[in-house]
């Protein structure tokens, strides 16, 4: 889920960089030196997870897992996902150097929202079922926000992209549901095995 180079207008690209740098600065400030190995390893894990392919009919969908990243990392997801996106742009040419700011905002921004959404839904002492449900909704919601962000960026650049943006939203609906289910199972698993990783702990 990346916007390619060449599509967006200069104001959209500039706004993307301003918001991305602000978010990355906040995230980096909230990352204590002792957190670095954990945040980096989670960033690397999310980079690897995006290669996971789920068959949908004759095509495949790649996972985004930004909701899960947000649930576990909060604001620290901004620098972690910025780095993952930068490496994807350099190593595989997904996205690109100028559109990196916008791609960070549309993928890492919803991750931060997913963190607060999860906390709101799960409450202070959730059971595994409630945590899983909150995780699922946050995971699906993060992908929905990312797709909405992409559609907004496209229509802001040129109203002629409206049909393309609408079809983009429709095409991603199965991915939202898949991400929701996978996030729910993952959060339930982590709740049972290592509860202190989920929001509410102090790491």
């Amino acid at each position: 889920m990346h916007i390619s180079e060449g599509i967006l207008s200069p104001p959209a690209l500039a706004a993307g960089w301003v918001c991305a740098l602000a978010g990355v600065a906040v995230g980096a400030r909230r990352t204590r030196p002792e957190d670095v190995p954990r945040v980096a390893l989670l960033g690397a894990a999310f980079f690897v997870t995006t290669f996971m392919r789920i068959p949908i009919g004759p095509a495949h969908a790649h996972l985004v897992v930004n909701g899960l990243a947000g649930i576990l990392l909060g604001w620290r997801a901004m620098p972690a996902l910025f780095i993952a996106l930068m490496l994807q742009a350099v190593l595989f040419q997904y996205g690109g150097p100028v559109v990196l700011g916008v791609n960070t905002v549309i993928i890492a921004g919803p991750a931060v929202l997913a963190h607060y959404f999860y906390r709101l839904l799960a409450g202070r002492a959730p059971g595994p079922g409630r945590a899983g449900m909150a995780g699922g909704l946050a995971g699906a919601g993060a992908v929905a926000c990312s797709v909405a962000g992409m559609a907004l960026c496209l229509t802001w650049t040129d109203p002629a992209f409206r049909a393309a943006a609408a079809s983009l939203v429709l095409v991603h609906i199965p991915l939202m549901l898949i991400e929701g289910m996978i996030s729910a199972v993952t959060v339930m698993f982590l709740y049972r095995v290592k509860k202190e990783l989920l929001p509410g702990s102090t790491w």
Partner: peptide, 26 residues
Amino acid sequence: PQLTRLSLRAHGLLVGALLLRSLERA
């Protein structure tokens, strides 16, 4: 890998296990 409930559950557990191993390694 298939688009079934069981397969998605397996993927969810795979992601969970990968995260957990990452954190232990971290």
